[in-house]
């Protein structure tokens, strides 16, 4: 693999069969509109043979072009039959297509050279990231842990503290935080415009509330969700992180 690519680099003087042909045309001072097929084919084959003798890795594209040229050469060597002029007109000069392709390639080769010059001249221009104008938008508006605790308190004020009597006995790990996190994410997924803090605390047992609260903190920390409060003492909204809500 490495040996192969090493050989390949050596013939990088040419970018491919088209490039080699253009080179031959220029060296032989041939008019691109009137290519002597026999001559150009011989010259082309000579290069291929040289590469071959040196056991260079000849890209298959070169061989395809070689075959095309040889086919063209052999057709020109065939004795020309007298054909009626109408038929002659419809028959296309096989050189035509090659000429068009060469001319097309030459244009882009030139354009590539111009780009190369521009690159070498060091013309790069610079800009910078946009400024964030919206005051209080984005990160600034993110609710803090204290906002979240306040929200919890407000909820208790409205609905009363969680009833401890519901809890009986020891229920260890009944709701592992990981599961609650998934649960919250699921709920948020269903409401892309955000979900209120209160809606997340459906059940009223203390364990569950603590669990939900911790899961929420964990999600905020992981940057999976975003907790926002537009005004102080207003409802807290939980969003899926990465969604575009109210920004721009």
């Amino acid at each position: 693999m490495s040996v192969k690519s090493e050989y390949h680099i050596k013939v990088e003087g040419f970018e491919g069969p088209m490039d080699l042909l253009l080179h031959l045309i220029q060296r032989l001072e041939i008019d691109i509109h009137d290519i002597p097929v026999a001559e150009i084919t011989d010259q082309y084959m000579e290069y291929i043979h040289t590469m071959n003798e040196l056991e260079l890795d000849i890209a298959s594209e070169y061989l395809v072009m070689a075959a095309t040229l040889l086919a063209m050469k052999s057709s020109t060597l065939l004795p020309e039959e007298p054909v009626d002029p109408e038929e002659l007109e419809s028959e296309e000069d096989p050189r035509e297509e090659l000429m068009e392709r060469l001319k097309e390639y030459r244009k882009f080769k030139y354009a590539a050279g111009q780009l190369k010059d521009r690159e070498a001249e060091d013309n790069e221009v610079y800009s910078r990231p946009p400024v964030s104008i919206e005051e209080g938008a984005g990160d600034d508006q993110q609710a803090t842990v204290f906002d979240m605790i306040e929200a919890l308190q407000r909820m208790f004020n409205k609905t009363g503290s969680p009833s401890p009597e519901v809890e009986t006995g020891v229920k260890r790990d009944e709701m592992p935080i990981k599961r609650t996190m998934d649960h919250i994410l699921q709920k948020i997924q269903q409401s892309p415009s955000g979900i209120t803090f209160e809606k997340l605390f459906s059940a009223r047992t203390r364990t569950e509330m603590v669990n939900t609260f911790l899961a929420l903190l964990e999600l905020v920390k992981d940057k999976q969700v975003l907790c926002r409060q537009d005004e102080h003492f207003e409802d807290l909204y939980i969003f899926k992180q990465g969604d575009n809500h109210g920004r721009e």
Binding site: G16, P17, M18, E61, R101, Y105
Partner: peptide, 8 residues
């Protein structure tokens, strides 16, 4: 692009 350049 390949076609114009004659190579991959």
């Amino acid at each position: 692009v390949d076609y114009i350049r004659g190579v991959k």
